[in-house]
Amino acid sequence: MTSDSELLVPLHVAYIKSLGENKDDLVYHMTAHLRLNAIYWGLTALCIMNQKEALDREEMIGFVMSCWDDEAGGFGAHPDHDAHILATLSAIQILVIQDALDRIDIPRVVKFILSLQQPSGVFAGDSFGEVDTRFSYCAVNALSLLGKLSELDVEKTVAYIRSCKNFDGGFGACIGAESHAGQVFVCVAALAILDRLDEVDHETLAWWLAERQLPNGGLNGRPEKLEDVCYSFWVLSALSILQKLSWIDSDKLSSFILSAQDPDSGGIADRPGDMVDVFHTLFGVAALSLLGYPGLVDLDPVYCMPASVIEAKGLRKSWQALERRSK
């Protein structure tokens, strides 16, 4: 088999393991503001490839805890970086996957997350107040994983997401913004967690999502834009929540994702021939899992975490992936 038809699991595992070993590289330090997110991306990709043990559990939990910002009561992306809701969700996701939630002061984190909700219902990323429906999703996902959704003002949260809905069925980052597949994922997944999918115009949105597929099999994030592997996950996740995965050509999409692998050093890029990174590696592997690629572990498209972890917490929603193929 060539790299165009097969997922190069051992190479991707080696690539993810190597990411922590580049400490003499400028790029490694210039991306410190994404470190905790990157660990979540790498760990989740490993779990989906059934290689969770490839990274040391204790070391990982220790690093997560070293990112705690005690002044704010949340997690930064790196030790001594400020708390932000993006890093806080990654920390919680990592600790849930590693079954180590007992390490954190849950009431304090909940307080931090709830403090970010604005009068309009949207969430800010931190105390400086940038707002985005991404942050609403982070808050809903994190509170759900912590078992504290009951403390959220659901009506207010849903009202803001509703006000970001466009005529094409999609959602934007804020009121008035253009529909974007990434924002569609966060809004639909947040509504799924809150059991409020009645807010979605299923038929129109599934149509818009299906129209993201381009003749080369890849998916774009907005009309008349280029394909990119990360949209594979965002579009597929929303389609599987709407139970319409069959509305695109899954074989062509699988081939596109596989063609974006680096066949020499592992990892997946945004598109064929580009530099790989752990973000696209996760979203490529996650999409292949939803498409039933053989040998992969089931991914929960709502939380973007291993399905077994979400099921064990009793949080599974009614999404539908393609049946896993045996070969």
Binding site: D25, L26, A269, D270, R271, D274, D277, H280
Partner: peptide, 23 residues
């Protein structure tokens, strides 16, 4: 890395790049 072309570098070239980057 959105839209950055993948290039192949020899181990020597890679080491030289890192050395240059050190400062």
């Amino acid at each position: 890395m959105h839209g950055v072309k993948r290039t192949r570098q020899s181990r020597e070239a890679e080491e030289a790049r890192k050395l240059k980057e050190q400062a």
